[in-house]
Design a protein around this nucleic acid. Structure first.
Lengths: 338, 338
DNA sequence: CTGAAAGCGCTAACAG
DNA sequence: CTGTTAGCGCTTTCAG
């Protein structure tokens, strides 16, 4: 029923070793035989069994990509970039969605290990070195993208979270804001922590009061962005400006702000980490736009270097985000009930 | 270095066959041996090599999920539902994103076949029976979710695209609209075609004129929704109501409408297939909410029945969408430049 | 340059 | 109930 390498070999009048060599582009095969093999492969429409191949060669041509939330369009672009690079190399991407759940992450990392994938790109769900180190121990290269694992030496490709946040907050301060709130992702996620540090440093450097009450954190999802923003704005806004630490949080914050009938930027000014794509009628606000495609691309390139056996010391690549703002909007909100 | 089944066997003082039986929950093993094996597995922290297992047993415990666009939050929920069911069964999900690209789809389907996955759930990129039939021929069960493949007998789990669209359009007609535009996905995608048919039938049944010029189609992505909506609305709106065929198209349409300074629903009324989650300040509009979690869940359940050997005739499950509307919005648009 | 033969690590068939 | 044996389909020595 299914056609095997020995069928191809017979059809081409060679040994299966030769077929194997041809299909893996190994040298030392006469051109004539190569052609005969290619013809036989086509004639029989032979597809090598990748499971057998992986077992024998102890490595597959699949890489694992472990991310925390496919709803996040930032990751979306990262996934796309990684897929693009992988395709070029003839690798496929096994996409694993952890939902910010460390147990799911562990499950998937073990699975990828047991599947003998060639390498893994991960955006760790929580500070959790042990999860990834089991892969490293199994000699499977791992690259962290977007988030890193503290106190764990590994290849990373990140954006300048602290600096970009610092700039966003400094701009708010320059506009005269003195009470700036922040809704961030859990500080055990490195992006949350680093963005928090940029926020805090900007406030301290400007000689303003830093108040812990104005900083709330949760999961980087819209629900938490909504809930925590309400906490900062109800019953009476404690703040005049709000820093939101990720695109989904920003979405939730926007919902909260408009539900309360507050106007942006008159009542509350907004600065967001991440740009919101394709959200209709955004208000005047500023944001840090991450180089998401570039992050994914470089992470993939780094991974493939490792897969090819590169042994140089761990690389830590930083690609800066761009600070931008929406200065014009055709839409005006008349949300406040008079 | 890596611990093998025979290491576990030695450690437990049994044969590797026994270890294998214990780990696969096969019957006929004394409880005492079972315990010794479990202890040895724990002691050595043994993880079975899934590649070897798959090769030998000719089936893996991974299912493939081939979807067209992970940016679409409808698929997101579908993915989540499928993952939930798979987890319960001890299976993992290999997520493949085709980007509406039939070649990428073919690449992934071949890969999944070569990886000997236990089954595949697919939302086909285009009408393309051959892609999936190669899996079926290889005896890998395939279930279509959301979209089907015309003229191809297979298990499907879909929503009532035609009926729900018919209802949405009928409601618009009941409100007095006579010129209703539609921006749909490519009619070679079954959801696009079926939603179109509901639209057309509603118009004809109401005795209105059906005009092909008012129906535009493209890919189900925000860019196309934006571009095509502009075509219907510029330089002068040809229509008083717009039917958008998918969530991303709706997003693009909203952007177009607001950029043109049109008010919803005063200038143009909007009916969307798919609800938009977490989009701040939606206007008054109606939509068909797909039972996305349920679709994914039933597709997964159907697939696992097939994996367990069910041979009943192809199932075609339809789960209806809910027609709903946003009747109240705290936000008022003052977009029109006077 | 090519073929024969030996496994990769596991599970299924067959004895016992 | 348990162990021994024989492969799954491929790649990789090792000869020639």
């Amino acid at each position: 029923m299914t056609v095997l390498i020995k069928d191809v070999a017979e059809h081409a009048g060679v040994s299966s070793a030769t077929v194997s060599r041809v299909l893996s582009n190994k040298p030392h095969v006469r051109d004539e035989l190569k052609e005969r093999v290619h013809k036989a492969v086509a004639d029989l429409s032979y597809e090598p069994n990748r499971v057998a191949r992986s077992l024998r060669s102890q490595r597959s041509t699949v890489i694992g990509l472990v991310i925390s939330d496919i709803r996040n369009s930032f990751y979306n672009t990262v996934v796309r970039a990684i897929e693009d690079v992988a395709f070029e190399k003839g690798y496929a991407v096994f996409l694993c969605n952890t939902d910010e759940n460390p147990e799911k992450e562990l499950f998937y990392l073990n699975l990828l290990k047991a599947e003998k994938v060639a390498g893994v790109i991960i955006s760790p769900a929580r500070e959790n070195a042990s999860n990834s180190s089991s892969l490293t121990n199994a000699n499977i290269p791992v690259v962290a993208v977007d988030r890193r694992i503290p106190n764990f030496e590994m290849d990373t490709v990140l954006t300048n979270n602290t600096e970009a946040s610092y700039q966003l907050i400094s701009q708010l301060i320059a506009k005269g804001h003195k009470r700036i709130g922040a809704v961030l992702s859990d500080l055990s996620i490195t992006t949350g922590r680093e963005r928090f540090e940029g926020y805090k440093q900007a406030i301290l450097d400007a000689g303003l009061d830093f108040s812990e009450n104005l900083v709330l954190s949760g999961l980087p999802i819209a629900e938490d962005g909504y809930r925590l923003s309400l906490d900062l704005l109800e019953p009476k806004p404690l703040i005049t400006a709000l820093f939101t630490g990720n695109e989904l949080i920003t979405l939730g914050a926007l919902k909260a702000i408009y539900e309360l009938g507050l106007n942006i930027p008159e009542d509350i000014e907004l600065a967001s980490f991440d740009k919101l794509d394709w959200i209709p009628f955004l208000p005047k606000m500023s944001f840090a736009e991450q180089p998401s495609y570039e992050l994914g691309k470089q992470a993939a390139q780094l991974l493939f270097e490792r897969i090819s056996g590169s042994n140089k010391e761990p690389q830590n690549i930083i690609i800066p985000s761009k600070i931008q703002s929406i200065t014009e909007t055709k839409i005006k909100m008349v949300a406040k009930t008079p």
